[in-house]
Design a protein around this nucleic acid. Sequence first.
DNA 1: CTGAAAGCGCTTACAG
DNA 2: CTGAAAGCGCTTACAG
Lengths: 340, 340
Amino acid sequence: MVTLKQIAEELGISVATVSKALKEYSDVSKRTRVLVRETAHRLNYKPNSFAVNLRTKESKTIGIIIPEIVHHFFSSVIKGIVSQAEKKGYLVIMLQSNESYDLEKKQLDLLISKRVDGILISLANATGNFDHIKNVISQDIPLVMFDKIAKVVNCSKVIIDDRKAAYMATQYLINIGCKKIAHFRGPLLPQNSIDRFLGYKQALLDNNITYDSSLVYINECSDKSFEEGKKNAKQLLKDHKDVDGIFINTDLVAIGAMTLFLEKGIKIPEQINIVGFSNWFMSSVISPSLTTVDQPGFKMGKKAFKILYKEMMTKKKNKNFDYKQVVLDTELVIRDSTNN
Amino acid sequence: MVTLKQIAEELGISVATVSKALKEYSDVSKRTRVLVRETAHRLNYKPNSFAVNLRTKESKTIGIIIPEIVHHFFSSVIKGIVSQAEKKGYLVIMLQSNESYDLEKKQLDLLISKRVDGILISLANATGNFDHIKNVISQDIPLVMFDKIAKVVNCSKVIIDDRKAAYMATQYLINIGCKKIAHFRGPLLPQNSIDRFLGYKQALLDNNITYDSSLVYINECSDKSFEEGKKNAKQLLKDHKDVDGIFINTDLVAIGAMTLFLEKGIKIPEQINIVGFSNWFMSSVISPSLTTVDQPGFKMGKKAFKILYKEMMTKKKNKNFDYKQVVLDTELVIRDSTNN
DNA sequence: CTGAAAGCGCTTACAG
DNA sequence: CTGAAAGCGCTTACAG
């Protein structure tokens, strides 16, 4: 590999001058600058990033930790992050926590050891203690949480208003005439699962519909969403034959539920109205197509990187930054699984 | 950040000894070793990876370039790579070529500049010239291609036998009695698109069915697969009303086609048998479920990393390595979209 | 405008 | 068993 030294020797000048010429410093003569650049190009010189990192104390690399890669929403977020990062000359290291707290913690350590310039993270469902995150933040390493966040942690965040979105979805079911509305919520722990549930509950209360906890179904295992949807739907039919609407935490679970209903000959939306959450692209494609809350993954990824970038730049100038919380808009996409 | 120097000063010994103690070198007294380790732990010492990289000339990082992140198959491959890499202490930088040759080339340069220890790549559809890849290989940087490969490039590869798999799929359609079998192929360029087409063609020939090029439909734009499936299906109905089987390049396209047929009241599999390719998880879930070729993404990712790892280790010992080509098994998963 | 020098934080061959 | 020294390849403050 070609080094500055070799270019310097080739031209009979010093390494310092070569370095400066390559960086377009103004205190190098035009002649030298041109000569150096030509030689560098001819020898196919590429700066040794290891050395650059060591000197500048930056890696121009960020890390991202998500619970699950094989997931339409998360991969959209990643795409948003990677595309934006590339524009700014940053590379992205990807890690998957597998919804495990221990792994998440270990991976955070890994990224710190690698001395990434910043970290983007969406929490694992199993994460209930946030000391590992706080620890990173207290070291002044820029960190932005997205989607699955911890409200109690003080840092920048990019989210949607899950509560409001769930409220709107439930209100919509009420508006089209549903009287008995069930809710399939996700696992207990993650904040957005909680918020969607709270939105559902609030909408009922505001419309003078008594909240009935037996209408709320939990699905524990998030990597078997489709199956869980079927299971919950089956149970629902046993428990409450007269339910006429369901607000479901995630599209894939909703699709599972719809599949079961169709198998059982129950008509959607005539007998049961269904609203999902996430606007997974399959949801527009299945039959009947699914009414759902659109969750802007790509946009979220872009925004999260932008905030992180600002924090990294501010830190570089040794200034302090304020934490920012961005709430992205969601939209209820009305399709054929509800009776409109 | 704590450095070796600080530990050394704390204990009144040299940096060299601290370094060796931390690395469990045998020529350090037990007492010193223990002392150093305790102090390092107490001060929360983390080696500066920038300095380590510069000295050891490795980054313990690999790069991966894929055409598209938001894609079930590719995200499965990534998951396989990331999980395997983590086991061996490697971090993974992810880049997306967006099916663009120019981007792919630029990103390869980026990774080289970052001095990653190895590269995994699946080619963009637009890539027809392979000099950028050959250039990397000629620099002795370990590189493994997977799934979308270039046959003419001499390097390690992990693939499935697309041709054989397509042959089996087509043969199956023939076996269940199809007389006029169409094929929806992908874009023209990528090797696996070509191979699947050739497998289809060969199966026809071996069964004395005349190959008719008007039965082969191209879909150009790979990020609108579902729509392209519908479009091709529509065209097919106009061109060849009597087709009784279709072998389709990708599940998502197949699902698009099925959707159109169902809309037009055509019965699957009674009127048309459909076989897809990839075994996307939705394919088992839709109605009718889709017969398809299972393409083992997670396994492919793991295998690709393993081969890359071996090459990196061999290179480290300054030995030469032979290129390896691994062909993973595929399986025809028979479901309800074919008449069995 | 150019270059010598120091230093980033580590590792390792070598001397003692 | 310990440590001084050199060096990985850069960047930048400083002197001239």
